[in-house]
Design a protein around this nucleic acid. Structure first.
Lengths: 216, 216
DNA sequence: ACCTGAACACCGTTCAAGT
DNA sequence: ACCTGAACACCGTTCAAGT
């Protein structure tokens, strides 16, 4: 064996990294239900059982894939980070689904850090940090996933775009003004709204609350 | 046949209502993964296929069960409604999981209505209603589900209580102060905190933001 | 040590056959 | 019309057997 024998190996040898990369390709191309160990093994030209030598189970695989696409979103401000997460979840809806399915996972840690890390510099007192970042993170992930789910729904119904999906939701919201007067009142705003802009307005509302609490 | 023949029938005849009630019993007793059509059919002394005459599929069944336990939470104020939802999701964690899995579902409509319906009386201008209720609903459902998931985790590890679970999370948050300085800084607050009280503080923060935006 | 792929123990859903 | 329960078309995961 040559002296670089160890370095070359089989060039297609399995690894966590290659498995997660292949999983992300499947998830992005065909959605969450397309990710099965059989499909993943086929794409990696191996057996389904081989994957278990590198990832413990499907949940860990999804967590690793989620960390890959939402970890370390850059941004100079809380709003910039929030919009970065919004875009990442819009591009990878399955990551939004996984983040909400497992609230305590490691990927959430990175989100807490990148959103909350800017609070001290804003002059927010330490006693408010925990509440502030909890509200921010829950809103950012929840609203981004809600938006991404609308995109998935629009893709599922091949004949409609995202505006049509929102219109359909607005119709449903308007359907029962007696039981749901408030929802009926905001249905128009839903129909007219721009997802990303509205998302940013929500972040601003929370920031206003944080600063208002801080002054007390 | 007697003249009350129609009214009596088989007393155990299937119906949406009975199926949903049985599903909730299974979900509350043994958790989400225990709800299978076979287990449900066994509890109802029928065949699995019979259920499909009354509910379209498992997703619809979960949606109906979720509406049952989080629909129409009473409360005089936004905080009271929010705490009612917190308690409902704490008592039925699977409902929290389902609400976050399907953001656009009907049960969410009721939540928007009960949380947002109090905004007009607070003097919040109509242009702020949509943002305000979106932030509120995402925080309430997200944070309540996060809390409930901690309870599920505590139950799963039979030897620990909820405080121990939070302590373990806090340990994880403290583990890497270089990469996660902010998370490290708030780990202490997590360990010490009271879930329900902290949840209420988050609602207050959002309400402060709503009122601050309203004054502009 | 890593890989293979058949086998196991399940699922949700369908559907011919019954009442 | 409603119910029955076997059958279908899958899953994630395990594990004996290979290299």
């Amino acid at each position: 064996m040559s002296r670089w024998g160890m370095a070359t190996r089989r060039s297609d040898a399995l690894s966590q990294q290659r498995i997660v990369a292949a999983a992300i390709e499947i998830l992005d191309a065909d959605g969450e239900q397309a990710l099965t160990f059989r499909a993943l093994a086929a794409r990696l030209s191996t057996g389904a059982g081989a994957i278990y030598h590198h990832v413990a189970n499907k949940n860990e695989l999804l967590s690793a894939a989620t960390e890959e696409v939402v970890g370390a979103v850059p941004g100079d401000s809380i709003l910039a980070v929030a919009l970065g997460l919004f875009d990442a979840i819009d591009a990878h809806p399955w990551a939004g689904a996984h983040l909400t399915r497992e609230p305590g996972q490691d990927a959430m840690l990175a989100i807490y850090e990148s959103l909350g890390g800017r609070l001290p510099a804003l002059g927010v007192p330490e006693r408010a940090w925990f509440d502030a970042v909890t509200v921010l993170a829950n809103y950012v992930v929840g609203a981004a996933w809600q938006n991404a789910a609308n995109g998935v729904e629009a893709a599922r119904r091949r004949d409609t775009d995202r505006a049509a999906v929102l219109g359909a939701v607005a119709d449903r919201w308007s359907a029962d003004p007696e039981r749901f007067p408030f929802v009926h009142a905001i249905a128009g705003a839903l129909r007219a709204h721009d997802d990303r802009e509205q998302f940013a307005a929500g972040v601003d509302l929370i920031l206003a609350g944080i600063l208002s609490i801080s002054d007390q």
